[in-house]
């Protein structure tokens, strides 16, 4: 009896979840470990949907770019944890939503609080820059930067801002005394320019 009630409650939750996804125009949502296989699967799924919907090539390319960089950000950085907390390593939430005028790609993953300052500074610095400054920063980082052990080039955020031409929107929410949830959302305009 109780079990039946639980199941019903759960199914009702699923329906609420579904409605909420529809309300926010979410076309893809995932929580878990972000691997290279996941990156390939999500990008090719989104790509085939966009191509079915005759989205302009330039929009398809931008969405593809942003998705790859966002997913790789999580897979390459979300496990920089010293706390050995298995739940956090390489994991995160990943969402794609499609509105009338734009696509949004949103990621969320746990970060240690002592990284907040660094990340904020990095993102603010990129947000302040105009096209030409971003181009110079990208070139300099490509020349002088080194690949991290996990193959990160430190270019992802710069590339996202350059491709979307929009500020990187982000937010930190506290999880515990030591960790926070880092959310980042990038929007790609659906008009072809």
């Amino acid at each position: 009896m109780d079990n039946k009630k639980d199941v019903k409650g759960f199914l009702e939750f699923v329906y609420e979840f579904y409605k909420s996804m529809k309300a926010h125009e979410i076309t893809l949502v995932y929580e878990g470990e972000i691997t290279h296989q996941i990156t390939k699967a999500f990008t090719s799924l989104t790509e085939s949907n966009m191509s079915k919907e005759d989205e302009p090539n330039s929009v398809q390319r931008k969405v593809f770019h942003v998705m790859v960089e966002c997913l790789q950000n999580i897979s390459k950085h979300a496990d920089d944890f010293t706390s050995n907390d298995y739940l956090f390593s390489g994991r995160g939430i990943f969402l794609v939503s499609k509105g009338e005028n734009e696509y949004s790609v949103t990621t969320g993953n746990a970060v240690e609080n002592d990284k907040i300052e660094y990340l904020t500074e990095l993102l603010e610095n990129i947000n302040r820059m105009d096209k030409e400054e971003l181009k110079e920063l990208y070139k300099r980082q490509m020349k002088e930067g080194r690949l991290s052990e996990k193959g990160g080039a430190g270019l992802g955020f710069i590339d996202i801002k350059r491709k979307t031409n929009k500020e990187l929107e982000y937010h930190f929410l506290p999880i515990s005394d030591d960790t926070s949830f880092f959310l980042l959302t990038s929007t790609i305009s659906r008009s072809d320019n």
């Binding site: 390319r61 593809f64 770019h65 790859v68 960089e69 790789q72 490509m142 930067g145 690949l147 193959g151 990160g152 080039a153 270019l155 992802g156 710069i158 590339d159």
Partner: peptide, 9 residues
């Protein structure tokens, strides 16, 4: 036709 930032390096 496409390369990611890590490839650009």
């Amino acid at each position: 036709t496409y390369f990611n930032t890590a490839s650009s390096k």
